[in-house]
């Protein structure tokens, strides 16, 4: 036990990033409480985000028509700082894939990162298996066009036209390739929608896509696509946002009055 207690002592005496820890400690209880309420069936009010309504409708439409949707998952590597954005891309892909899998319809996922492609394959395999059609799973439904963003955009645009897709959903981590992909498909009479959290890339995509989300709206995908646990964390985010707003206002006043330098 002595080495263990020595280890604990040494960890406690080690330097800790107190600001980050404080933010986490404020957020964690809010997150736990609201997530539990969300999972218990409490309905939180959601403002309409047209993109997610259209994704729901198009997922059903694609299932009925038999034309697949193409989900472009972006270039966010799982394991990097883009992991949360990649997770949201996978959430959207999961939703669309389950719809398609229930009726044994095709679906197409394109990613600009190999780890994301592997995860998307797992999601699709799961969806096909649970819908009772495991034999319909083919790894090639999730494709990868290299780690270069523009090569990825060119590959995604190339396959879109070739496979007669119903619509494009480009949600995840995108840079300028988001505009490239969207505009390359603008010539085709098809719906293009998506978004990214990077404001500079989102501005380009918003100018080009039929329907777009920017910034934190990307992280709300799960809450709008039938994941009750996401509803709770979204509410916790809103509370913390209010806290931050209050802190900014107080900070401005205190600094203006000369209490803080």
């Amino acid at each position: 036990m002595e080495p263990l207690s020595a280890l604990i002592d040494s960890i406690l005496s080690a330097s800790v990033d107190l600001t980050a820890l404080a933010i986490l400690l404020v957020f964690l209880p809010l997150f736990v409480v609201f997530t539990a309420r969300g999972k218990a069936g409490y309905r939180f009010g959601l403002r309409p985000i047209p993109l997610y309504s259209r994704i729901r409708q198009l997922a059903s439409h694609a299932t009925e028509s038999g034309s697949p949707l193409q989900v472009s998952l972006g270039s966010g590597q799982i394991g990097s700082e883009a992991t949360p954005e990649a997770a949201m891309a996978l959430t959207v892909f999961d939703y669309v894939a389950r719809h398609a899998a229930t009726c044994a319809q095709p679906i197409h996922g394109v990613s600009g990162d190999a780890t994301l492609m592997a995860a998307a394959q797992g999601v699709l395999q799961n969806a096909r298996q649970e819908s009772g059609y495991p034999e319909n799973y083919a790894g090639r439904e999730c494709t990868f066009y290299g780690p270069d963003p523009l090569a990825y955009a060119a590959g995604a645009a190339g396959t879109f036209g070739a496979d007669n897709h119903l619509a494009l959903i480009a949600l995840g981590e995108f840079g300028a390739e988001g505009l490239w992909l969207s505009e390359a498909l603008a010539d085709q009479a098809t719906t293009r929608m998506g978004g990214t959290s990077d404001p500079s890339a989102a501005a380009l995509m918003a100018a080009s896509l039929d329907e777009a989300v920017i910034g934190e709206d990307v992280y709300a995908a799960g809450a709008y696509l039938h994941r009750p646990s996401h509803l709770g964390s979204l509410a916790a985010q809103d509370i913390l946002r209010l806290v931050i707003m209050l802190a900014i206002v107080v900070g401005v006043i205190m600094t203006s009055l000369g209490y803080w330098s």
């Binding site: 959601l46 309409p48 985000i49 047209p50 997610y52 309504s53 259209r54 729901r56 409708q57 198009l58 439409h61 119903l166 619509a167 603008a186 010539d187 085709q188 009479a189 098809t190 719906t191 039929d210 709008y224």
Partner: peptide, 23 residues
Amino acid sequence: ASLNESRHVVLQRQQRLLPAIGR
């Protein structure tokens, strides 16, 4: 319907946003 879905009808875009000559 939640989120005004029933009022937001998805119609596939059948025409090009910009004619080929304009582009």
